[in-house]
Amino acid sequence: MGASFRAESLKLRNRPAVWILGLVWLGLAVVLGYVAVYAFVANAPPPPVPQDVPEQERARIQQQERQFQEQQLQSLLPENALSGALSSFANLGAAVALILGALVVGGEYGWGTLKTIVTQRPNRPQVFAGKLLALLAALAVFAVLILAASAAASYAVASLQESPVDWPPAGEFARALGAGVLILALWAALGVFLATLFRSTALAVGLGLVYLLVLEVLVLSLPIPNETYRNAGRFFPGQNSTFLANSFAGGGAVGGPGQPTGAGQAALVVAAYAIALVVLAALIFRRRDVA
């Protein structure tokens, strides 16, 4: 498996699509999560208040606006760096991981390279395990880079605001990294499974994104007045990965009807889905003819 892992790592390092995906996520996470928010909040003009509003009411509205701006700026500071970083994992990061998972397996079918590598020496389970390990390593690097970029951006905001720099405890950083990698692993596993099943990158990416962005939300928003149906939401992968990502926000994510009861449960559900998808994909990969 070590040989397969080294071969896969060499491929991933030299594949432009991997770097492009990583840089797009990194750029969007910093620009949308920090630069755009800071530029808007810091330069926002005072809210227009009609002239006929009494002075006392006018002062109250302006006070509310200042509080909102302060909250927004507060969310960009180092003490909230983890929640800022993790917020992108369950949507943009999930999409990137899904595409990457589909690319890693689907490319082999598209280029016909699967027959070349499985006739080299390792057996198919070793090839597959090497792929997954290399993919997981790439996702871990992505997660570290996003956390580091968020930390750097929040430090920059603190410097601009001349605010004190209070970092979250190191343990929280480690927990956030673990949660982030777990979320990415789930969506990458879905990409791997779909690409293996359909022997195609395009179909896997298309179907995966439809599920991630539309299908689960659509299913859970159906107006069905049934307790069991509403509670079923807590077992859906998207719900749990979003809950897990939001659990790093101040006060943690709040569970409600159809929501996981806690970050621990969300992590377990996410891990269970990731493992199940990988096992299914491995079985298909091992058994099926290489046409």
């Binding site: 040989a3 080299q120 020496r121």
Partner: peptide
């Protein structure tokens, strides 16, 4: 066993040398 089955199939984004290095790693 060394094999070339159907048309040759390699990674288009890698050089010939790097493609061979990938296969060398698989082969040990």
């Amino acid at each position: 066993i060394g094999a070339l089955v159907e048309s040759p199939a390699f990674y288009p984004y890698l050089s010939g040398t790097n493609n061979l290095k990938v296969m060398a790693r698989y082969s040990g």
